[in-house]
Design a protein around this nucleic acid. Structure first.
Lengths: 338, 338
DNA sequence: GCGCGCTTTGCAAGCGATTGCAAGGTCAAT
DNA sequence: ATTGACCTTGCAATCGCTTGCAAAGCGCGC
């Protein structure tokens, strides 16, 4: 039934050798105008297209990029996935997705399977990679770039925003806004993103002579963030500002503050997020946040990966600077115009 | 550099033939306990794993499923993508994603590339497929199943909810709630989902002796929906209820009604959506909606696809029934308890 | 000890392309 | 007309595996 058309059939119909057909479809292959025309005609008549898998076997390039991702609930990632995939598609690569849990143990078998598929490169989105795995990939000559997650390993490329600087921005903005009791609902401290944002925030506060009145790790989980907000803000001397580890959780926190605790934002409490997901701009939330420039992150990721695949460049750790996106969820410092 | 381990190397180290190694890794391959043990040992020492691509070449099965998707902004699709991918992963298939625009012309080249990758099957999520393409896929023996989109073509499988019935539910609920001026901001009328929901809604109203006071196609676009809401509800005799073609747009409509027009939901206007995306349940929105059971849709999709790949079953058009999920965005009919 | 059936094994032919190599062609310069 | 440089072309090996086929091995009843 499945009438596969092969280069051989095209060759016969065109009256040329099979290699000629192959050459016609290989960029830079040496074919005369005449043969090219014959092959083109025959190929079109037969509806022939080269078999990527066969090509992959002999050339050793599959034009497949493995993308490991933990979850799509946080609105930042669907966006990243779409942009990454589209950017790669434009460069004639395709993305093979693999879902993992957010633990190194669960990533291990997933990456194994990735390698089975002979991917040309791997992007991990918000997922950490064990040393053992890094070795395997390095040994197999497959470049890895971590998207929105860092790791202290020179063999791994990574693209992140400057989370420490971002945390500092948050501190400056909240202190500048005249807040006295500043709290922090942190991103997962098991990830560099979470840790660095927290670190920058703490440092920033300290530099301005402030200290957090409360802090809790919500592990990038919506429900956990809500739970923490509930207890953190129910006491009498509740915080008057909170920096949340990412937007996804910040929105949850806003919901709790307004709908469960009846607080008003930003009059009673200022809320600051991190990421700038599309929802942050919706009228209901108008979340002030540290913006991660997804487009630039994606471009950097794709460039780094393809450079490493096509040339043999060294791994790069890229740091992109974020910026403060001011909306209405946090009191604005006097004279703050940026 | 890239030290690929092949079955031949394993064979040598184990002191058996290369076929024996292959058989060991083929489920159902005939190998004695003794050889199995030798192969296992050698394979582990060398870190050998079969090359999926090479296997695909000879067996004709790549264990890759192509997923064509138009956009991830509507929160229904990230969810679907994740569930589909996880379900397939569990059955030892992987998903190769392809982004397309929502027009048949743009889908064409995308599916071409899919075929180049020798995928075993194709899932299209909310994307239509041209006849020409259907033919190519049928000719190549590659089953296609459309997720959340129907099409009148017996060669295509599809999984949708009963959108007509859903539209009727919406009509019943709004009429039952005592609304007099009922409007409709429709899903894209170029898609079966949009048309069917509208159709069911119109029929449902008519059966109850009602008629829409306004209707407009918002093409599943957030901004367009907002724009339409703005004009539709700014007149003096504005509607007192609106059924929106999906949740993604409904949330936008709610934002406009409340924040721009200062209307109160559901006191001034009742809003009804379709899908039941996670956001619909967030306290800010509490959107009453027609629920599409994603889990069941995904299971049905995966089952249909794999049945067709593995057996040689006929295409199936599966209709799953949705249900009304009552929250707070629409006035509830008296005595309505369900 | 021989023959029969069943399982296990190895050989070798593909799967559909790419690519190095050498042969054949073309064309300009001599 | 002859030569050499250069472009085209075809041959055949190769990528890493699966699988049909026939030979080998094994256990068992006679």
């Amino acid at each position: 039934m499945s009438e596969k058309v092969t280069s051989l059939q095209v060759a016969e119909r065109a009256g040329v050798s099979q290699s000629a057909v192959s050459r016609y479809f290989t960029p830079g292959g040496s074919v005369s105008k005449a043969t090219a025309a014959k092959v083109k005609k025959a190929a079109e008549e037969l509806g022939y297209r080269p078999n990527v898998l066969a090509r992959a076997m002999v050339s050793g390039r599959s034009r497949i990029i493995g993308l490991v991702i933990a979850d799509l609930k946080n609105q930042f990632y669907p966006m990243a996935l779409e942009l990454l995939s589209r950017a790669l598609q434009e460069r004639d690569y395709q993305v093979l997705v693999f879902f993992a849990e957010n633990s190194t143990e669960s990533v291990e078998p997933v990456v194994q399977r990735l390698l089975d598929y002979q991917v040309d490169g791997i992007i991990t989105a918000s997922v950490a990679v064990s040393n053992h795995l890094t070795e395997r990939c390095t040994a197999a000559g497959i470049p890895v770039v971590m998207f929105n997650r860092g790791q202290d390993d020179a063999r791994l490329s990574s693209v992140t925003t400057d989370n420490v600087a971002g945390g500092r921005m948050a501190a400056n903005f909240l202190v500048g806004g005249g807040h006295a009791r500043i709290a922090h609902i942190a991103g997962w401290q098991g990830a560099t993103t979470g840790r660095d944002r927290t670190l920058g925030f703490v440092e920033g506060l300290r530099d301005l002579g402030h200290e957090m009145v409360a802090m809790e790790d919500a592990m990038y989980d919506r429900d956990r963030a809500a739970e923490i907000a509930r207890t953190m803000f129910s006491g009498a001397d509740r915080p008057d500002a909170v920096f949340v580890g990412n937007d996804y959780m910040a929105l949850s926190v806003m919901d709790v503050l307004r709908f469960e605790l009846g607080l008003s934002i930003p009059d009673d409490v200022s809320v600051l997020g991190y990421d700038d997901v599309p929802l942050a701009d919706w009228p209901t939330y108008q979340l002030t946040t540290i913006r991660q420039p997804v487009n630039r992150m994606v471009t950097a990721t794709v460039d780094t990966l393809l450079d490493r695949i096509e040339g043999d460049i060294e791994p790069r750790q890229i740091l992109i600077s974020g910026s403060l996106k001011i909306r209405a969820s946090a009191r604005r410092p006097k004279g703050f115009t940026a």
